[in-house]
């Protein structure tokens, strides 16, 4: 007779590997934000060729299921790099996951950031220019503070998508929360599968709510940079 593990046991077993999920999540969130900003810059500055490539990448990452993107990166990167003499034939599943999720998150964020950048009124650019700001000063002191509050809700949604999609990396063989959950579900002869996955759901719910909370905090902090539009000028 196999004893089914208790709820506490399952939670502790799952939390033992939670750091792998968080590690993949945080690294791809940071790299994805950098990539997204870079790609947005390419689109905004209208750099030929690179701009077309960015559009293709962004369309691809949004049209193709993330599970395929994970598999393509996992299988395609080693042979691709070996053409350039770089040998990564033992690319770890974790590294492949980070690359795939970074591309996905970056492609998604490009749309969000571009819209936020476009939302900054043209007069703001002109005003800064006429005050003699250098382009870098203009960007960091005038434009960026106004882009952030507009882009935050979209960034929050992108983060939620990213968190949900990290649950798929176990398909590549990463031993994260989902991988461990499958093992537990299989080990106890199907006695507590529902229980295991409900606990996994609760863990993910906690993570998404933390991320939502973070975004809301940032929104509150940056609210003062949001200029009143014609619609709510007198109201706020």
């Amino acid at each position: 007779m196999v004893e089914a593990p208790s709820t506490i046991d399952i939670i502790s077993l799952l939390l033992q590997v939670a750091h792998i999920t968080l590690y993949i999540l945080i690294i791809s969130a940071v790299l994805g934000l950098l990539l997204g900003s870079f790609l947005t810059m390419i689109i905004v500055k209208n750099i030929p060729i690179l701009k077309q490539l960015t559009t293709v990448l962004s369309s691809f990452t949004r049209s193709v299921p993330i599970i395929i993107q994970l598999f393509i990166v996992y299988y395609a990167i080693p042979p691709l790099l070996s053409n350039f003499g770089i040998n990564v034939s033992n690319l770890s599943a974790v590294a492949a996951s980070i690359v795939a999720l970074t591309l996905y998150h970056g492609g998604y964020l490009t749309e969000v950031l571009r819209a936020a950048y476009k939302a900054v009124d043209k007069g703001q650019h002109e005003a800064a220019d006429s005050f003699g700001y250098t382009p870098i000063q203009k960007f960091f002191r005038i434009i960026l503070p106004q882009v952030v509050p507009v882009g935050l809700p979209g960034w929050g949604n992108a983060l939620i998508h990213l968190i949900h999609d990290t649950s798929l990396v176990f398909a590549l063989g990463v031993a994260d929360i989902m991988g461990r959950a499958e093992l537990i579900a299989a080990a106890s002869y199907g006695m507590n599968q529902v229980q295991v996955f409900i606990i996994v759901a609760v863990i993910y719910i906690v993570v998404t709510f933390l991320s939502d909370g973070l975004v809301r905090l940032l929104e509150k902090r940056t609210k003062k940079y949001k200029l009143d539009s014609g619609l709510n000028a007198g109201g706020a």
Binding site: Q193, V194, A201
Partner: peptide, 22 residues
Amino acid sequence: KLFLRGTPLIVFIFIMYYSLPG
């Protein structure tokens, strides 16, 4: 809606897969 906002689709599919027959 709150539950789905936080739960990845694959987790929900597994929950359904194991609980729907019951």
